[in-house]
Amino acid sequence: MATDFIIIDIYKEEPGLDMQKIDDKLLMQFFETMVTIRLFEEECRRQADLGKLRGMHSSIGQEAVPVGICGHLKEGDYILGNHRSHHHCIARGVDINEMMAELLGKSTGTNRGKGGTMHIADIDKGMLGANGVVGSNIPVATGAALSAKMRGTDNVSVVFFGDGASGQGVLYESMNLASIWKLPVIFVCENNRYAEATPFEYAIAGGNVSSRAEGFDMPGIQIDGQSVIEMFLKATPAIERARNGEGPTLIEALTYRYQGHFGGENPQSYRTKEEEEHYKSNDCIKQIRNYLIEEEVCGLDDLTRLEEGASVKVEQSVKFADDSSFPDDKALYEDVYISNS
């Protein structure tokens, strides 16, 4: 087998990131959240192997994207996700005990055990739901932005979708609506290079998603999704533009899905080990970890403490889920309508 593989690093190194706009405490929070996501996802995989967790789409490798974006969000802002959304939820502050309980189908889960991995929602925390139909949440996010505007707030909504969703017409309908009405929505395409097993260079005409913004009279930018610092800083204008009532932005975050499309699927049936190693060498957590040490933001012991803390929290989430009960039979019939809630 040829060892050649296609590397598409379309983002360019850009000098002059203003590190003054990101304080040390926030950087350490980013690190902690990203580590929590990774450990949570690894634990999910173990729970799946034990037969307790019934299927998932792992977000390992993509942690920096929502963590950087959500660093800008405040109360009243909403995010919306897709089938692969555990990292979005954790980045927005959804409780991992309740998430693990949901994934194990327990009544204490975020969705009372009725939604599972593809539908985690926590409205109070600003997570307006994950969605299993590709592209389906994009207009919903546009509607949340319409609501924020009509209610006279400066809140924004952020929708995360994959490169695969750029094939859905509803993205372009939503971008047009958001642009003509100057809605405070940020469309975040997490280009992890694969829509299931289909590589994006096959499926996306023109080779990128961000340039499609031009036709809708909105900014379209590419960001290195493996750098949480770049994700945060380069998303700043998009958030400000939305809060100021100037309209939407399309962000294409270039990232990589380390695992298969779903738990247990072998991605090397459609990509090479060499390609995986190339992208994994640019790991987002390794990057921020090195930065924190090299720039003397904190010491190794601080990082170890954060890592151990995250590990304990993830362990506790399993205990919380294990100790919880399955929903009662009557839960099957509840919440179809308000009248039977």
Partner: peptide, 14 residues
């Protein structure tokens, strides 16, 4: 599955 990767022999991934 894996369309566009015929060069890697990966055109029938799924």
């Amino acid at each position: 599955g894996g369309a566009g990767r015929e060069d890697q022999g990966k055109s029938d991934a799924w």
